[in-house]
Amino acid sequence: MSRVSEFNDEHGLAMEPEHRLLDLESETGELAKELLKASEYGTDEFEATEGFEDEFGDVYYSLLSLADECGIDPEEALESSMGKYRERFDSSDSVGSGA
């Protein structure tokens, strides 16, 4: 995480969380496009391409940047979510919230 924060600080890339979220949404759309292209729009088995991996990296960077702007430790957030999913699976064999 600190690499992303340091990079953003060094290059003056601070953004309001709302703008970071929009950037994340944009990058997620580009990732989806690469998946569709790589699978011939679902007609072939998906295999990660260089373009997909590149877009995945962009999504990851954007997500970590959003966490940084919001003061969230991504490792702590992941651990919390994993605990929640473990509890759900243990009680219902599903990770869905059931809501």
Rank of each mutant, 00 (worst) to 15 (best):
Arg20Trp: 15
Phe46Gln: 05
Tyr85Trp: 09
Gly51Met: 03
Lys84Asp: 09
Leu66Ser: 01
Phe56Val: 10
His19Lys: 06
Ser80Trp: 02
Val95Phe: 05
Ala48Glu: 14
Arg3Val: 13
Gly12Phe: 05
Ala77Met: 07
Ser5Ala: 15
Val59Gly: 02
Ser97Trp: 11
Leu63Arg: 06
His19Gln: 06
Ala67Met: 08
Glu34Met: 03
Gly98Met: 10
Thr49Glu: 03
Glu16Asn: 04
Glu53Ile: 12
Ser5Gly: 01
Leu78Cys: 09
Gly96Leu: 14
Ser80Ile: 08
Gly57Ile: 05
Ser94Gln: 12
Asp68Phe: 00
Arg3Glu: 15
Glu47Ala: 12
Met15Glu: 09
Ser94Ile: 01
Arg20Ile: 07
Leu63Pro: 00
Glu45Cys: 09
Glu18Tyr: 04
Leu36Arg: 12
Tyr60Pro: 02
Ser65Ile: 07
Gly83Leu: 05
Ala48Ile: 09
Leu22Tyr: 04
Leu78Asp: 14
Ser81Glu: 08
Cys70Tyr: 07
Asp58Pro: 00
Ser26Glu: 15
Thr49Cys: 06
Phe56Arg: 06
Cys70Val: 10
Glu47Val: 14
Ser91Pro: 03
Asp68Trp: 07
Ser65Pro: 05
Pro74Met: 06
Leu31Tyr: 04
Val59Pro: 03
Asp54Val: 10
Pro17Glu: 01
Leu21Glu: 08
Asp54Thr: 11
Ala99Tyr: 13
Gly57Asn: 14
Phe46Ala: 09
Gly42Gln: 06
Thr28Trp: 10
Ser91Asn: 12
Glu55Ile: 04
Ser92Val: 10
Ser92Asn: 14
Ala14Tyr: 02
Leu31Gly: 00
Ser81Leu: 11
Met1Ser: 13
Cys70Arg: 09
Gly98Val: 10
Met82Gln: 11
Gly42Pro: 00
Ser97Glu: 08
Leu24Lys: 00
Ser65Thr: 05
Tyr85Gln: 00
Ser65Leu: 00
Asp90Pro: 05
Glu34Leu: 00
Asp54Ala: 12
Lys33His: 15
Ser91Gln: 08
Ser91Phe: 04
Cys70Gln: 14
Asp93Pro: 02
Leu36Ala: 15
Glu75Thr: 10
Lys84Gly: 02
Glu25His: 07
Glu55Trp: 03
Val4Pro: 01
Ala38Gln: 01
Glu34Tyr: 00
Gly29Arg: 10
Leu35Ile: 07
Ser97Thr: 12
Asp44His: 07
Ser97His: 09
Leu22Ile: 00
Glu25Asp: 11
Glu16Ser: 03
Ser26Leu: 11
Glu27Trp: 03
Leu64Trp: 02
